[in-house]
Design a protein around this nucleic acid. Structure first.
Length: 514
RNA sequence: GCUCCGAUAGUGUAGUCCGGCCAAUCAUAUUGCCCUCUCGAGGCAAUGACCGGGGUUCAAAUCCCCGUCGGAGCACCA
């Protein structure tokens, strides 16, 4: 009986068992757990809510990777909403808005809509006014520290009992910019004795003296806090599922007070833990990376040592490889470590088959012992290794010998010993040079002769390979000059690399992984 | 101090809701062997985990309690 027949038969005998079977199958097909309560909604609607205070580090890629994957799975809708309501502490970087949209595209997703919170300030003001009408908020001029003490003691501040008219007037004065930073806030009235101090009468709006970097928003001085802005926007944009970090665990609890006043239903919410990526010395935080870029310690956001999306992209890693790794992390609320080897393995799987091979003899750099120049006698005029060992049909490269070759020092055979120059043939070390022998390939299989890569001393391409450990310089086979920027090659016995640029004196490549 | 949350091999993950098919899945990693004109790919194998202690039960990774460890919030940041 085939699987389909079995299924049909089961449908007759025990339809409820069939349902069980199918829900299990569904789980098997998806690495991510099912979203909660999906059936209660006509459409799954989610949002990415990046703060554009800098280009994305690797951890940020988890957001589009997971949310985008859910969007595809449920045929849902995805908003990219820039939560750029802090012109001071997490000041927006004007270049980051597009950099983030580029990163989303690189990762293979497309938001159905893009909005900026800084364009929607009037909407937040309107909702604040409504909240004041409903008695759900009050203006408060307590210094932050004083309020904090009262709050921790579970005691209301004197402003909590203000009449609606005063609150209304003072909020309008906030909107009109009549206060300076720290002088007045609008608080949501929650429960000042709530057992969780984090939820007591939180700030919804505060004053910021420094103008927003976006011209369109530069005139505002009264800015909403995340809990207010995000809460209002999630409702207004019909978000059904919120997926965000555990640092925002209490945000949902705070926002429920707001939703209570407005009579709104709170969306489903999933919190995941923090991601760390091994393999990096640089801390994965926007501000840390920004500081290192500004000080010149990193050459840019796409420096190979930077734990950023732009860096992996420049190294030739496919967005898909990152997405798959992020999706495999799941949505556990425990903190997780992402192993770069998983990203590398994913990428290798994606690119290996289509990537041409090439020789790079490394001469200088971290972990490199130098290159040695050796005259070659009696050898053929050129070596002809294949473009890809698994695809003969793609043809062979032609690498001239021109009387002398460069080998990496580690590959250089001692006097009297043989080595197989890949694609060329067997040579023996005699004095300061190499002499071709007539040995068949069997000496490699049976005789313990090593196969090594090489380039001609005369005709080669000066190459820089930028790696996470620093730059390696060396010489590549002449054919490397023919690759366009953005193409990948695998330097045999070294690793995969992306061709970045052909400069006057050298070709620059970025190392991806072994 | 108050309030939440979490814990399966080096890493991630499946299984936990609804206890038995779990001497625990898959991937990655490491090691060995085979294959190979790469240290890539491919094939085979090995390594390696249910945080601890109690309880419930015929039966516990799974349910309950206590502990330990880790994380988050208590911002006029997001």
């Amino acid at each position: 009986m085939s699987a389909a027949e079995q299924r049909e038969r089961l449908a007759d005998l025990a339809p409820d068992r069939l349902e069980d079977l199918e829900s299990e199958d569904e789980a098997d097909d998806h690495p991510l757990p099912a979203l909660p309560n999906v059936d209660a909604y006509d459409e799954v609607r989610m949002r990415l809510a990046p703060n554009p205070n800098g280009p994305w580090h690797l951890g940020s890629a988890r957001m589009p990777a997971v949310i985008g994957t859910y969007k595809d799975r449920y045929d849902g809708w995805m908003l990219c909403r820039f939560d750029d309501t802090d012109p001071e502490t997490k000041r927006p970087d004007l270049a980051a808005y597009d950099a983030i949209l580029d990163a989303i595209d690189y990762l293979g997703f497309e938001p159905d809509d893009v909005v900026r919170a800084s364009d929607r300030v009037a909407v937040y003001y309107d909702h604040a006014r409504e909240l004041v009408e409903l008695g759900g908020a009050y203006t408060c001029s307590c210094p932050a520290e004083e309020f904090s003490e009262l709050k921790n003691a579970g005691e209301p501040c004197p402003h909590r009992g203000k009449d609606a008219e005063t609150v209304h007037e003072e909020f309008e004065a906030m909107v009109d910019g009549e206060y300076s930073a720290g002088e007045m806030v609008l608080r949501v009235r929650t429960d000042i004795e709530h057992k969780n101090p984090a939820l007591r009468d939180w700030v919804a709006f505060r004053m910021v003296d420094r103008p927003h970097p976006r011209e369109e928003a530069a005139h505002y001085r009264c800015w909403p806090m995340l809990d207010f802005q995000s809460g209002v926007d999630d409702h207004l944009t019909g978000i059904t599922h919120i997926i965000r970090g555990i640092d925002l665990q209490d945000a949902a609890k705070r926002q429920r007070f707001l939703y209570g006043y407005f009579g709104w239903e709170y969306p489903e919410v999933v919190h995941w833990g923090h991601v760390q990526v091994d393999a990096y010395d640089v801390a994965m935080s926007t501000s840390t990376i920004k500081a290192k870029v500004e000080s010149g310690e990193l050459t840019g956001w796409d420096d190979p040592r930077a734990p950023t999306v732009a860096s992996l992209r420049r190294r030739g890693i496919r967005g898909r490889a990152i997405v798959e790794a992020m999706v495999e992390l799941g949505t556990s609320s425990a903190n997780v470590d992402l192993s770069m080897s998983v990203v590398s393995a994913n990428n290798r799987e994606l690119v290996d088959d289509e990537t041409d091979r090439a020789f790079l003899v490394r001469a200088d750099g971290p972990g490199v012992d130098g290159a040695v120049e050796l005259p070659v006698t009696d050898a053929p005029e050129a070596g002809t290794p294949p473009y890809h060992p698994d695809h003969d049909g793609r043809g062979r490269r032609t690498i001239p010998v021109d009387g002398a070759v460069l080998l990496e020092r580690d590959d250089c055979p001692p006097a009297g010993e043989r080595v197989w120059l890949k694609g060329l043939g067997c040579v023996r070390r005699e004095g300061d040079g190499l002499v071709a022998t007539d040995d068949p390939i069997d000496v490699v299989r049976e005789g313990g002769v090593d196969v090594v890569h090489w380039v001609p001393t005369e005709e080669n391409v000066r190459t820089r390979l930028r790696t996470m450990d620093g730059d390696v310089t060396g010489h590549a086979e002449p054919g490397l000059a023919a690759y366009d920027p953005d193409e990948l090659v695998q330097f045999e016995r070294v690793g995969f690399a992306r061709v970045d640029a052909h400069e006057d004196d050298e070709t620059v490549t970025y190392y991806a992984h072994p």
